[in-house]
Amino acid sequence: MILPEAASEHGKKIDQMFEITLILTSIVFIATHIVLFIFTYIYRYNKARKAYYYPHNNMIERIWTIVPALVLTVLVLMGFLTWRSIFHKVEDPNNKPLSVEVTSSQFQWDIRYPGKDGIVGKKNYKLVTSTNNLGIDFSDRNSQDDLVADEIVLPVNKAVRFTLGSKDVIHSFYMPHFRIQLNTVPGMPTYFEFTPTITTDEMKAKTGDPNFHYVLLCSKICGTNHFNMQKVVRIVSEKEYEEWLTNQKPYLTDDLRKAFNLPVPVTEPAKAADTTATASVKPSIENQLALKK
């Protein structure tokens, strides 16, 4: 169809409604235009004829008030219910969605995955420094194991809840294939939960395009490079996801540990500081794998 295939659960519902709306409005569009052009043609000026004095017909007018009203009521009801089902998710304590935080700034997306605790820790814009780009508050234990990611990778068929925020101006988190769009607003976190249903590889096969990849774009005017504010999104199997996750580095570096008065792990003398940082967190990631449900 004219929309790219929906790759999320709620996206399929949206598309259903989209199709109903498309069909209804197309019928009206075509019918009214046929009427418009036929009337203008048939009733074009003719000296011999006189127009028909026909000021009103309450019956007809009532019909064409009530019928659109009914059709629109149906559309509103469908829209309202679907809208609720998208934005009012009931939390199931046994099957918590994966949490991912995305922070926008001119003109980039910063992604933060929770560490083994599954919780993305606190942050505060006042803590932003050149080393702590997001202003993560590492005195919050939940922050200490949070991971940097340079792309969004998600396991297929698992619910994920995005926490969105912005550092400077308003941007908008837009992933057309998943039928997701939500503004990122400085000072006000926003949330979007959804379940991707088609992996990138499956989509490559479906579209017949070996270069296909999902994209995250910015859809709210945000400045000079608004047109080029992107992130690749990959939907993968659960297994690939776990593998990928083990390779992600934590936000908390030794420098930041010092800045937050956290104990710096003892370094093996032979190695450089930054590699140490990675090595020291390795175990925690393995723990997280064990914890994954």
Binding site: K13, I14, V28, F29, G79, T82, I86, Q181
Partner: peptide, 21 residues
């Protein structure tokens, strides 16, 4: 007519998710 009908799409919050901006 042509522009008004697409208003029905955009006025529907659910469809607007994907069409806004």
């Amino acid at each position: 007519i042509s522009g008004g009908l697409t208003g029905i799409w955009l006025g529907n919050a659910t469809l607007d998710i994907n069409l806004h901006d």
